[in-house]
């Protein structure tokens, strides 16, 4: 009996070891980038333009470029995703049409980001003639994060109990008034969680903007949505793999990686914290 218990303990510890080795790996990545990236970050680095094709100077245009892309993406994807979710949860019946929408969402969620890039290239850049631009990149990224936003919004809507709708309808509110005044306000924080996760994903993606929006070096900041932009992930990719003196400019690479990582993790953490607070606030 005792032997059996010891065996069991060993197995527990093995499982624990396996699980924590994943944690360790993550911690190692984060620390490695933090330790090597932190010294590279300075005021100049964050607010300056790249010099000597990125070997010196700063990454301001890349930071702003990513910001522009992300804003464009969310402006397009958030309302569409929210309305789409409202349709699915509040209006659609259990019919083939609704099922095809769900199937489409699952399909979209599984399409590789590079394929979105190809699609954006074919539709936005070439056919609609937006060229490689903020507009084309944002629209491409918006298509990509749409499923994330729809699914999160749906969940948020479903978490608002049925009696909120019945109670309002019974008071003579129309369906839309009910949704607008008595469902959406309570679902909104949950929807925002999805939006933030979507933003995090859009900010870190490289493959789609590679084909639709990004340039390695631009002397000026973009002035319209039809301009190309620099972007953090693409900048890091080029510095790390395409730069003739890649080995020598490691600090620049680490610095860029750290800024990108902080941005994306920051967004993810914000989403996680928001989610926890929402769950605490509304206990139905």
């Amino acid at each position: 009996m005792n032997k059996k218990r010891t065996g069991e303990k060993i197995i527990y510890w093995l499982m624990r070891g396996v699980t924590y080795s994943v944690v360790l790996f993550i911690a190692y990545i984060l620390l490695d980038i933090l330790i090597h990236g932190l010294p590279a970050i300075s005021w100049n680095f964050l607010t300056g333009f790249p010099e000597k094709s990125g070997a010196e100077g700063g990454i301001l245009p890349a930071i702003l470029g990513t910001l522009y892309l992300v804003i464009g993406t969310i402006v397009v994807a958030l309302p569409l995703g929210m309305f789409s979710a409202v349709y699915l949860t509040e209006y659609s019946k259990q019919n083939r049409f609704a099922q095809s929408i769900r199937m489409a969402i699952v399909t979209l969620a599984g399409i590789p980001s590079i394929v979105f890039g190809l699609f954006g290239l074919g539709l936005f850049v070439i056919t609609l003639n937006f060229g490689s631009s903020i507009l084309a990149g944002s629209l491409t990224l918006a298509c990509m994060i749409l499923p994330t936003i729809i699914v999160a919004s749906e969940e948020a809507l479903k978490s608002v109990p049925k009696y909120m709708r019945e109670g309002s309808l019974a008071l003579g509110a129309t369906k839309w008034e009910t949704i607008y005044k008595n469902v959406l306000p309570y679902a909104l924080p949950g929807m925002l969680t999805g939006a933030i996760l979507g933003i995090g994903r859009a900010a870190g993606e490289t493959a789609p903007i590679l084909l639709t929006a990004a340039a390695f070096f631009l002397p000026d900041l973009p002035t319209s949505v039809f301009d190309q932009v620099m972007a953090l992930p693409y900048h890091l990719y080029i510095l790390a793999t395409q730069h003739p003196e890649a080995q020598k400019i490691l600090p620049m690479q680490y610095g860029t990686a750290l800024v990108l990582l902080l941005l994306v993790i920051g967004l993810n953490m914000a989403a996680i914290i928001l989610r926890i607070r929402v769950r605490k606030k509304y206990k139905w």
Binding site: I26, I29, I33, G200, R201, A203, G204, E205, T206, P233, Y234, L236, Y237, A240, Q253, A257, L260, L261, V264, I265, L267, N268
Partner: peptide
């Protein structure tokens, strides 16, 4: 959530 380009780097 870690961007793949960071992981690649």
């Amino acid at each position: 959530g870690i961007p793949s380009v960071v992981l690649g780097f």
